Simulated assay, not measured.
Amino acid sequence: MDNLLSLQNVSWKRDGRDILSEINWEMKKGENWGILGLNGSGKTSLLNIITAYEFPSSGEISVLGYSFGESYLPDLRKEIGFVSSSLSRFSHIIEYETIEEIIVSGKFASFGLYEQVHQEDWEKADELIGRFRLESLKGKPYKQLSQGERRRVLIARSLMNDPKLLILDEPCSGLDILSREQVLELTKEIVNRPCQFVYVTHHIEELVEDVTHVLSIKDGKIVAAGPKHEVVRDDILTETFKLPVHVRWEDGRPWLSVEKKVHA
């Protein structure tokens, strides 16, 4: 399976309004994609379609070999990991659970443990705790963790079920600079596994070295899609973000500045 994702002429309407229009995008084996766009550009809608929680008005979609309209899509969701700042809405359910319990719950795609947990599950969770340098947090309830620590635990949780594809939806939203860099460093652990990722953001400095390709989206339409250095350019991002910007590169990582307007 060379194509992990294939969207052909995908459009989606809601309440008679075009949310996504003529989306054509392929993600191949070995690629990790960043998705750039302003709030309201269609990023979340695109993710909802990829994860089969929304269905397009038109077009053809295949994700991890599951063709929409022909496959049993609940099985697809079991092969996709998902991390988002929006998962904080479940905090009240897990606030007294330890990080071990939260990570193990990823096997069952649940918040809270409602099924039998086997010894090998705890051992796998312990391996993830070590990989993600969370040993100092063992035994601590979720409510005592910082925002950055919570995000790291949720990323470890998302890998408990060995997903083939990991969706990182603005995972650094609301984090301070230290916590952000710690989360971004975790992409190295992800790419060392048989798992590829899609990283969604509107901050280009989060497109670290492990991100190989970028899709930029504006008003529900693709502006550009391809290798990172071909898409993360002044002209493309000026169109994507709807104001003049300049990109500079430092150690393979892009940074953005807004161009000052010259007044006559």
Score class of each variant (00 low, 15 high):
residue 50 I to A: 05
residue 26 E to N: 13
residue 221 K to M: 13
residue 247 V to I: 15
residue 130 G to R: 13
residue 48 N to C: 02
residue 68 F to I: 06
residue 200 V to R: 13
residue 216 S to L: 04
residue 254 P to Y: 06
residue 42 G to N: 08
residue 117 V to W: 08
residue 10 V to L: 09
residue 41 S to V: 07
residue 194 P to Y: 05
residue 126 D to R: 14
residue 52 A to M: 07
residue 66 Y to W: 09
residue 129 I to S: 12
residue 56 P to E: 09
residue 224 A to P: 03
residue 147 Q to R: 12
residue 191 V to P: 02
residue 197 F to L: 08
residue 184 L to G: 10
residue 169 D to S: 07
residue 149 E to N: 06
residue 11 S to T: 15
residue 150 R to C: 01
residue 37 G to S: 04
residue 223 V to H: 03
residue 177 I to E: 13
residue 97 E to I: 00
residue 247 V to T: 11
residue 218 K to H: 06
residue 26 E to L: 04
residue 49 I to L: 15
residue 219 D to H: 14
residue 63 V to K: 02
residue 231 V to R: 09
residue 152 R to F: 01
residue 122 W to F: 14
residue 83 V to L: 11
residue 30 G to T: 08
residue 177 I to W: 12
residue 121 D to T: 12
residue 252 G to K: 14
residue 255 W to P: 01
residue 256 L to T: 09
residue 165 L to E: 07
residue 155 I to M: 13
residue 107 K to D: 03
residue 161 N to P: 00
residue 97 E to C: 07
residue 194 P to A: 06
residue 212 T to N: 02
residue 63 V to E: 01
residue 233 R to W: 01
residue 18 D to S: 10
residue 163 P to H: 11
residue 136 S to D: 13
residue 70 E to Y: 06
residue 147 Q to F: 03
residue 249 W to N: 12
residue 1 M to L: 04
residue 183 V to C: 08
residue 264 A to Y: 09
residue 225 A to G: 09
residue 131 R to T: 12
residue 44 T to K: 05
residue 19 I to Q: 08
residue 107 K to W: 05
residue 38 L to Y: 00
residue 214 V to M: 07
residue 13 K to S: 10
residue 7 L to V: 02
residue 213 H to T: 09
